[in-house]
Nucleic acid binder design. Structure first.
Lengths: 165, 165
DNA sequence: CATATATGTCAACATGACTGACATAACTTC
DNA sequence: GAAGTTATGTCAGTCATGTTGACATATATG
């Protein structure tokens, strides 16, 4: 069912932008689908995945760091994080610099689940990168950075990486 | 809070793939945030947006077409679609080829809301495309197509577009 | 005629967001 | 050292959006 033709001279631009919108939808839908299935076996949802992922990514991060990344309320986070701590996927220790902080880490059990969930998404990205090629990956990165709202998030992706020729 | 260093020789590849995962998360989070705020004024959610968007994109589509795109159950769709029809954002008419079908279209009210919601996302994409440049956009498209699971979805994005030089 | 398809409906449930209010401990500032 | 701010947690209620399962109707197709 292709989109209907259109006489408007702005059509090409509008069509291109709509395709961008839709690509984000389809890609994200498929990107989350298989991890969701794995999570269901543990009676967890996508929110648990995000917490596990970022705690694995930044071991020793504080609760407030996680809130800044996820941009949800602490009450929302509290439910999933509480479950993950009680079921021993995540451990907490008091901060030394600031003893109010609870620093988060994956337990061995948590690392195991993280690997299982993330492997799936890593493979999907790896396949897409491989098929698209290195230049395409660079373009993908540029566009994705542009879609984000904040410089703070963009800064997470600074390229220390290969020198540009 | 940069990721901790790592001695594993696969680090660069793993780091690159993880950045891909995270870019999808941050971009999607920000991509949906402003439309969500607009929708809240109508007491609608993201699911309503998706329905309005795709009905606007493919006027006269059947319910089953929408289910194939959204990949949710008909019961889930029924709730939001029912609201949108009752509140006259979407109209239904019987199919002629197959009279069991209910063909969906936006009403004027629906088109108005669709414009409001989509304009926001179009502008975000337009800005990202403009800043990244044409080659980057082509790379972005390639990678996004690769992330999708099905050829059926990839086919929605066939380039009839500008002849390659 | 028999079967499959397109659609809808009712009910129950889980997840993950939200707001608002309140509490405690620890850090920072005057 | 008192006052204010920050980091975190908790209780309670609400809403949106997904799920499964069962059943119903009209229409199309073999």
């Amino acid at each position: 069912m292709p989109p209907r033709p259109h006489a408007n001279p702005l059509f090409l631009r509008d069509e291109e932008l709509r395709q961008g919108i839709e690509m984000l939808f389809y890609a994200y839908r498929d990107f989350t689908s298989e991890p969701d299935t794995i999570l269901a076996k543990y009676k967890f949802g996508r929110a648990h995945h995000r917490v596990i992922y970022f705690v694995g990514r930044y071991p020793g991060m504080a609760v407030s760091d996680l809130l800044n990344i996820l941009k949800i309320t602490k009450q929302s986070l509290s439910r999933v994080l509480g479950q993950l701590v009680r079921e021993e996927f995540i451990s907490q220790r008091q901060g030394t610099r600031d003893r109010r902080q609870r620093l988060l880490e994956l337990t061995e059990k948590g690392r195991e689940l993280e690997r299982q969930l993330t492997q799936n998404q890593r493979e999907r990205i790896a396949r897409a990168y491989r098929e698209a090629g290195a230049d395409a990956v660079e373009g993908f990165r540029k566009v994705m950075l542009g879609v984000m709202s904040s410089d703070g998030d963009r800064d997470r992706f600074e390229r220390s990486g290969p020198p540009r020729r």
